[in-house]
């Protein structure tokens, strides 16, 4: 069995079926890209994997670490090592990014004890400093309220900062590239690239191929109308860039 296995996932929202039987096998050490036209169900897949309550799972399972995580709360999934970089992160007034990161880090990696060692805080602060630098963010950025008044690009970088700080085993990146200029895209992609290794896997959801120039995927899947219509290596992404999605969707009769 793969490290993260999606089996015949069917999902509806308000009675309308969006995902019509998705099966994917992902392993740590791999980066998978999911591409597809607007409305194909890409974001739905991301949100369902993380457990957004507005979706109704009609059928299927998602196995991670020996559990069908569809039965778990989002925080339990996070605790198992799953992470979602949101396409539209929400704003939380009065909560600084650094406080939030610490709270989340403690929730995920704390041993449940109230006692915190000064050493633990010191290490966390040092890592925060380094990761801000990696994302070309000023240290004062961590003192701003979570996503409040952030530009589109800042929000995306804040998501990646969370990814770097929280150290999940599997990350889903939901259109992290959209709304980023070329420089920001490069910074973000390189930061994710730096996580690659045998203990980290990623599912990169994107509409465009450009993030994949920086973040070379091992596998590319095409999602159209709630189904995976093609899977292949990085060459598939290049082909899509040249030909668009139409040739695939038409071939499938979608």
């Amino acid at each position: 069995m793969a490290d993260l296995e999606i089996r015949n996932l069917r999902v509806a929202i308000e009675g309308k079926e969006i995902l019509k039987g998705i099966s994917l096998a992902l392993n740590k050490g791999e980066v998978h890209a999911i591409m597809g036209p607007n409305g194909s169900g890409k974001s739905t897949l991301a949100l369902v994997l993380m457990g957004h309550p507005k979706y109704e799972v009609l059928e299927g399972e998602v196995w991670f670490k020996g559990q069908n995580i569809l039965e778990l709360e989002p925080n339990e999934r996070a605790k198992l090592g799953l992470f979602l970089a949101f396409q539209y992160p929400v704003e939380i007034e009065g909560v600084t990014l650094s406080h939030f990161l610490w709270t989340a880090y403690r929730a995920l990696h704390g041993n449940g004890e109230a006692r915190i060692s000064p050493q633990e805080i010191k290490v966390f602060r040092q890592r925060l400093k380094e990761n801000l630098k990696k994302l070309h963010l000023d240290e004062s950025f961590a003192q701003r309220h979570l996503n409040l008044g952030f530009s589109g690009g800042e929000k995306k970088r804040a998501e990646i900062l969370q990814l770097l700080m929280l150290q999940p085993e599997f990350a889903i990146l939901d259109e992290t590239d959209s709304g980023l200029d070329i420089d920001s895209l490069k910074i973000v992609a390189e930061a994710v690239q730096s996580l690659r290794g045998p203990n980290f896997g990623a599912l990169v959801i994107t509409h465009y191929q450009r993030i994949l120039h920086h973040l070379k995927p091992d596998f590319v899947h095409v999602l159209a109308d709630g189904r995976i219509v093609a899977s292949g290596g990085p060459e598939l992404a290049e082909e899509l860039e040249k030909k668009g999605y139409r040739w695939l969707t038409e071939a499938q009769g979608v």
């Binding site: 309550p53 989002p74 925080n75 996070a78 709270t103 929730a107 995920l108």
Partner: peptide, 10 residues
């Protein structure tokens, strides 16, 4: 949902 996805209980 956003906060829970980061490990916080409801």
């Amino acid at each position: 949902f956003y906060l829970m996805s980061r490990g916080l209980k409801e």
